[in-house]
C-alpha cells in the first residue's frame, strides 16, 4: 500500500493525488491512485511502458481531466492555469520547434511562462551547455542536444515543481549523469521533482520510488527499502515480486 509522506516541516505536501483515476473506454490508465509528495525530493515513477506513468504525470500537471478523484499541486486543485506558472514539464517527445534556433525556443518558452527572457535564457542554455549553439536551428541539433534544449525550456522559469517524463531517453551516459546531477541540485534547492522512467538503473538516483503497474501504485519507498521488502538485491526482481503480489491480491 502506498504510504503518505508529509513534508519535513509538517506543512502541506507539494503534490497530492486523491483517488485519482483516468479511464480511456474500458482501459483504466490510472486506477485509484492516492499519494502525497513533499518538496525537496526526487520521486521516480517506475514501471513498464503502458503502465500509466505518462497519464499519471499528465493528470498531476493538469493536462488531462481525471475520471475520478483529483490532483493538487502547491495547494491548488489541478487543472489550475495560475499554478502552471510554477510547474515545469518535460514531455517524452522533445516538444521544441525545429524551425527555431536554440535561443528562439528558449525565449519563446520564457515568454509563455511570463519570465524576463534575457537572464533566464542565458542561465538555462549555460546549464545544459548549449550556449555556444544558441544560433543553431534546433532541427540541426543531435538527439541529445534537443533533449538538453527540451530540459532548458522546462526549467527556464525555475519552477518549484518539475514533471519529467522519461527525460533521459536517448541521452548518452555522460549527459545522463549531468541531468541527474542537475535534478539533485534543484531538489536540494527545494524543488519537488517527479521523474518517470522504465530504466531501473536510474532508480537509485531518486529519493523515493513509486512502482507503477496497470495504472496502480503497487509499492512505494526508497530503492533500498523496496529491495529489502521484496527480499532481493535487484530492483527489477523487486518490481516483479510486487507485481506478482498485486496480481495475487486482485
Amino acid at each position: 500500500m502506498p504510504t503518505d509522506a508529509m513534508s519535513p516541516g509538517g506543512g502541506a505536501p507539494a503534490i497530492r493525488a486523491v483517488g485519482l483515476a483516468k479511464r480511456f473506454g474500458l482501459i483504466r490508465a490510472v486506477d485509484d491512485v492516492t499519494f502525497d509528495l513533499v518538496s525537496g525530493r526526487i520521486y521516480g515513477l517506475l514501471g513498464p511502458n503502458g503502465s500509466g506513468k505518462t497519464t499519471l504525470i499528465r493528470l498531476l500537471a493538469g493536462l488531462t481531466h481525471a475520471t475520478a478523484g483529483h490532483a493538487e499541486v502547491l495547494g491548488a486543485t489541478m487543472p489550475s492555469r495560475t499554478t502552471l506558472e510554477r510547474i515545469g514539464y518535460m514531455t517524452q517527445s522533445d516538444g521544441v520547434y525545429p524551425a527555431l534556433s536554440v535561443e528562439e525556443n528558449a525565449r519563446f518558452f520564457a515568454s509563455m511562462y511570463g519570465v524576463s527572457a534575457d537572464g533566464a535564457v542565458e542561465e538555462s542554455l549555460a546549464l545544459v551547455e548549449l550556449a555556444d549553439r544558441r544560433r543553431s536551428l534546433t532541427g540541426t541539433l543531435s538527439g541529445g542536444q534537443r533533449r538538453r534544449l527540451s530540459l532548458a525550456c522546462a526549467v527556464i522559469h525555475r519552477p518549484p515543481v518539475l514533471f519529467l517524463d522519461e527525460p533521459t531517453v536517448g541521452v548518452d551516459p555522460l549527459l545522463r549523469v549531468q541531468f541527474w546531477s542537475y535534478f539533485r541540485s534543484l531538489a536540494d534547492g527545494g524543488a519537488t521533482i517527479v521523474v518517470s522512467s522504465h530504466v531501473m538503473d536510474e532508480a537509485d538516483r531518486c529519493d523515493e520510488l513509486l512502482f507503477v503497474r496497470a495504472g496502480k501504485i503497487i509499492a512505494r519507498g526508497s530503492s533500498r527499502e523496496l529491495r529489502d521488502r521484496a527480499g532481493t538485491t535487484d530492483l527489477e526482481q523487486a518490481f516483479l515480486r510486487f507485481a506478482g503480489d498485486a496480481e495475487a491480491a486482485r
Binding site: 495560475t82 521544441v96 518558452f109
Partner: peptide, 14 residues
C-alpha cells in the same frame, strides 16, 4: 503531433 502543443498547454497560455 510534434509534442509542442502538449508542452505549450503545460504553460499558463490560454
Amino acid at each position: 503531433t510534434g509534442g509542442t502543443l502538449e508542452r505549450l498547454m503545460a504553460t499558463p497560455v490560454t
